[in-house]
């Protein structure tokens, strides 16, 4: 039988391309135009500096300690914050998982995320100040004799990042943890494993891939800190993070080419850490976390 010409429309429809599929196009064009294109444009712009050769911006960045130092400054904030929030979040998530009514707690924890970094910064300016309630309470209990300086330095930014970062890390960990079938843990308990052994041999290995993702997302959030580093930190010195450098290049020096270069470097550092973590995740167990017969 000679090949009957199937109309193009039907052949496309058989592969899932018909009028309905086209509904995805506006969104695709939108993201291409306002996300992918600006990124490529920024990349291109970063190689056409105001003066000098193609790589002048990058050469300038990596030769000026005031600029390349921002990478270390930002990492020095973002990594401890991410690790601290994870170390806090994991045991607490294990505890909360056992509760029947989690909704009130999760709602309370969602508040700092919805309020956002600017409000947390503004609140901490008052609360952590030398006359604020925090120092006052510590002095009343006699834990300290003079107010500790928590604002306009490293600690102010660190604390604000933990306050906005902890709920995020916690809720993400909790949602991964509730995905693990409790039957697996019960089986361990039946065979005589204590709480620590169950954690070490059953739950933690199953949770690790999820924790890797949580680590990436929390790290990327913390690495792009901006308002709290300006408002609570010392933006000229110890908390001059990379986003401040990029912002200053763009909106104070009007050197968009340099600003794009810094933004690209910021993206590259984030990508490098995320790729490293995800590569390590590839070595972990990634099977089902359900307990059904399969």
């Amino acid at each position: 039988m000679s090949a009957v010409e199937i109309p193009l429309k039907q052949r496309l429809a058989a592969r899932g391309l018909d009028g309905l599929t086209m509904l995805v196009l506006p969104a695709v064009f939108f993201v291409l135009a306002l996300f992918i294109y600006p990124f490529l444009y920024g990349l291109f712009l970063s190689f056409t500096p105001k003066e000098g050769g193609t790589f002048a911006n990058y050469a300038k960045f990596f030769s000026d300690s005031f600029l390349y130092g921002t990478i270390a400054t930002t990492l020095w904030l973002a990594l401890p914050v991410t690790i601290a929030t994870l170390v806090l979040a994991v045991p607490i998530a294990f505890r909360v998982r056992l509760l029947k009514r989690q909704r009130l707690l999760t709602t309370l924890l969602v508040i700092p995320i919805t309020l956002g970094t600017v409000l947390v910064a503004e609140g901490l300016l008052n609360y952590l100040g030398p006359q604020g309630w925090f120092n006052r309470t510590l002095m009343t209990f006699g834990l300290i004799s003079t107010p500790i300086k928590l604002l306009h330095n490293y600690w102010g930014v660190m604390l604000s990042l933990v306050i906005t970062g902890f709920p995020f890390t916690f809720l993400l960990t909790l949602s991964y943890l509730t995905g693990i079938d409790p039957a697996l843990e019960q089986a361990g308990a039946t065979l005589g494993a204590g709480p620590w052994e169950r954690f070490k041999h059953i739950l933690f290995p199953l949770l690790l891939p999820g924790l890797a993702i949580t680590f990436c997302l929390s790290f990327v959030q913390a690495f792009s800190v901006f308002p709290s580093a300006v408002l609570l930190g010392a933006p000229a010195g110890p908390t001059r993070v990379i986003s401040i450098a990029a912002y200053q290049a763009a909106f104070e020096e009007y050197d968009y080419s340099m600003a794009s270069a810094i933004a690209m470097i910021m993206g590259m550092v984030q990508l490098a850490i995320v790729v490293a973590v995800l590569a390590a995740r590839g070595l972990l167990y990634r099977g089902p976390a359900g307990g059904g017969k399969g």
């Binding site: 306002l34 600006p38 444009y41 600003a259 794009s260 810094i262 933004a263 984030q270």
Partner: peptide, 27 residues
């Protein structure tokens, strides 16, 4: 290409706003 499209939609949520905000503001 559906996987690619999904990745395209995932990226703006994973990349922090300040990183893509600066090139976007420039454009």
């Amino acid at each position: 290409g559906k996987k690619l499209v999904m990745l395209l939609f995932l990226l703006p949520l994973l990349v922090p706003p300040i990183t893509f905000g600066i090139p976007l503001a420039t454009v």
